[in-house]
C-alpha cells in the first residue's frame, strides 16, 4: 500500500483536471437522465395505481424487491442484453430510482386530507381533475423528496456502473482498484470518491432550489 502524498495528489489533480471534469459531467448527466425517466415513469405509475389496492401493492412490492438486487449483479445481468456503457447504466439507475418515487407518489396522493378531497368533489370536480389539480400538487413536495433520495442513490450506483464501462467517476475508482500498489492508485480512487461526494452535495443543493420554485407557496413551511 502506498501512503498518501499530498504533493503527488496535487500534481495528479493538475494533470487530470479536465479529465475529471468530463467524468463528473458524465456522471451527473447519466444520473439526471435516469432520474427524469424514473420521475415520469414513477409518477405515471403512481397516478395509475394509487387507488387500486392490488396494482398498488404490486408496484410497490416490485420496486422494493428491485432495490434489494445488488447493483453489481444487476449490471452483470443487464450487460449481456444491453451491452456495455450508457445503456445498462441508465436502465440500472432507473431501476433503483423507481421505488422512492413510486412509493412517495402513492403516499402523497393517498394522504390528501379527506376534507380537501370532499370539498373538491362537492365543487363538482371530476375524479381526474381532482387527481391532477389537487392531489398531484399537494403530493408534489413528497414526490420531490422521493426523487432526491433516488438521486443520492443513483449517484452511488452510477459509480458501480463503471464495471460495465458506464460513464462517470466510477471509472477512476475502478482504475484505482485495478492498479493497487502503483503510484496513482490512491489518487484515482480518491478523485472518484470525493468527486461523487461533491456531486451529491451539489445535487442536494439543486433539489432545495427546485423544490422552492416548483412547490406552491401555500405548501411551504
Amino acid at each position: 500500500m502506498t501512503s498518501f502524498d499530498f504533493g503527488n495528489a496535487m500534481t495528479f489533480l493538475e494533470r487530470r483536471w479536465e479529465d475529471i471534469l468530463v467524468l463528473a459531467g458524465e456522471h451527473l448527466f447519466v444520473v439526471v437522465i435516469a432520474l427524469a425517466i424514473a420521475l415520469v415513469t414513477g409518477v405515471l405509475l403512481g397516478l395509475l395505481v394509487w387507488n387500486r389496492a392490488t396494482p398498488r401493492a404490486t408496484a410497490i412490492t416490485a420496486a422494493s424487491v428491485a432495490i434489494t438486487v445488488p447493483s453489481l449483479a444487476l449490471l452483470a445481468l443487464l450487460s449481456p442484453v444491453l451491452g456495455l456503457g450508457w445503456g445498462p447504466t441508465i436502465v440500472a439507475l432507473v431501476f433503483y430510482s423507481l421505488l422512492p418515487i413510486i412509493r412517495n407518489t402513492v403516499v402523497g396522493l393517498t394522504e390528501v386530507p379527506e376534507h380537501i378531497m370532499e370539498s373538491a368533489k362537492a365543487m363538482g370536480m371530476s375524479p381526474r381533475r381532482i387527481l391532477l389539480t389537487t392531489q398531484l400538487p399537494l403530493a408534489w413536495p413528497l414526490i420531490l423528496t422521493g426523487t432526491r433520495v433516488a438521486a443520492q442513490l443513483g449517484l452511488g450506483v452510477a459509480a458501480i456502473a463503471a464495471y460495465v464501462a458506464g460513464p462517470g467517476l466510477g471509472q477512476y475508482i475502478f482504475k484505482g482498484l485495478s492498479s493497487l500498489g502503483s503510484k496513482n492508485a490512491l489518487n484515482y480512487a480518491l478523485a472518484g470518491t470525493v468527486g461523487i461526494i461533491l456531486l451529491a452535495l451539489l445535487v442536494d443543493g439543486a433539489f432545495v432550489l427546485i423544490s422552492r420554485y416548483t412547490t406552491s407557496r401555500g405548501l411551504r413551511a
Binding site: P113, H115, I116, E118, S119, A120, A122, T134, P137, L138, S216, G218, L219
Partner: peptide, 10 residues
C-alpha cells in the same frame, strides 16, 4: 364544512 377544506396550494 367544518374543516373548511380550502385548497392549501391555491
Amino acid at each position: 364544512i367544518q374543516q373548511i377544506g380550502l385548497f392549501p396550494h391555491l
